[in-house]
């Protein structure tokens, strides 16, 4: 038996918004410690790693480990049926063929149940990728809205954005047929609010180029968290991380563009 309950179904809606443009289907690994998803986009350029800890749920029970293949489009359709204030419960039996989504209104007068068929995921199981969080040359924390804005604005100039990070701050630049654009963000000296701060932790400067298309998918996670964390080292994938309240995080890994 698997059962996971979240008082705020809005969190799950936002999580789906954050992955639906990158993934068509994904395996949800459920265990005693929580729910984990790791999946690459079709082009194998980016990897999405989603973690929802069991202690972050309002109720969580997982008697045996389950791997459930789910269509992200179908899941999105079902989550659209949840009211903004509804509670959501995910429920499956052991060896399930279906998963149940149960939405309950705050006054408990409306109870809606949706059943979704699981998919047999033929694709090779990824295993869980471990990364060393401390080994990045630059780690930047900045307002997620600002990051979304910069990706959107610079996407108008070309297909990719170059991130250059030094101890002064981070510089984003793009160029194309009609011109070029540069946005520099300095480290904030004293931000009034923590969520408005720009913080740079640098071991050595980095300069990396990334595809706008993927960055603009990642920023869909913006509503999950006021701050985004960008971890970078030269010649390795960017890690773009959004915390999901007290329950977990979503991390996107994006392969850089390399010189021919």
């Amino acid at each position: 038996m698997f059962e996971a309950r979240l008082v705020q179904s809005a969190i799950l809606k936002k999580v789906l918004d954050a992955i639906k443009d990158l993934l068509t289907e994904a395996t949800f690994e459920c265990s005693d410690s929580g729910i984990q998803v790791q999946a690459m986009d079709n082009a194998h350029v980016s990897l999405v790693s989603l973690n929802l800890r069991s202690d972050g749920f309002d109720k969580y029970r997982c008697d045996r480990n389950l791997s459930m293949g789910m269509s992200i489009a179908s899941m999105t359709k079902i989550l659209r049926c949840a009211g903004a204030e509804d509670t959501v419960t995910l429920r499956a039996v052991d060896n399930p063929e279906n998963i149940m989504f149960i939405f309950e209104s705050p006054n408990k007068e409306k109870l809606a149940e949706y059943e979704m068929k699981l998919i047999n995921m033929d694709q090779e199981h990824l295993g869980i990728i471990k990364t060393k969080e401390t080994s990045y040359s630059c780690v930047v924390k900045m307002p997620s809205q600002e990051f979304s804005r910069i990706c959107r604005d610079l996407s108008q100039f070309g297909e990719s954005i170059t991130f250059a990070c030094s101890k002064e701050g981070i510089k984003f630049s793009a160029s194309g047929d009609f011109g070029q654009a540069t946005v520099k963000l300095a480290q904030t000296a004293d931000a009034d609010k923590e969520e408005e701060a720009v913080l740079v932790t640098m071991q050595e400067p980095v300069k990396l180029t990334f595809s706008c298309r993927y960055l603009n998918c990642f920023v869909k996670a913006g509503p999950l968290c006021a701050q985004v964390q960008l971890s970078m080292s030269n010649d390795v994938p960017l890690v773009c991380e959004y915390k999901i309240g007290d329950i977990g995080h979503i991390r996107y890994y994006l392969a850089p563009k390399i010189d021919d």
Binding site: H44, H125, I129, S160, A255, K257
Partner: peptide, 14 residues
């Protein structure tokens, strides 16, 4: 000129 690398190249997928 830059080309898009694949993420597989960076992770040993089990």
């Amino acid at each position: 000129k830059k080309t898009q690398n694949k993420i597989d190249a960076y992770f040993k997928l089990q």
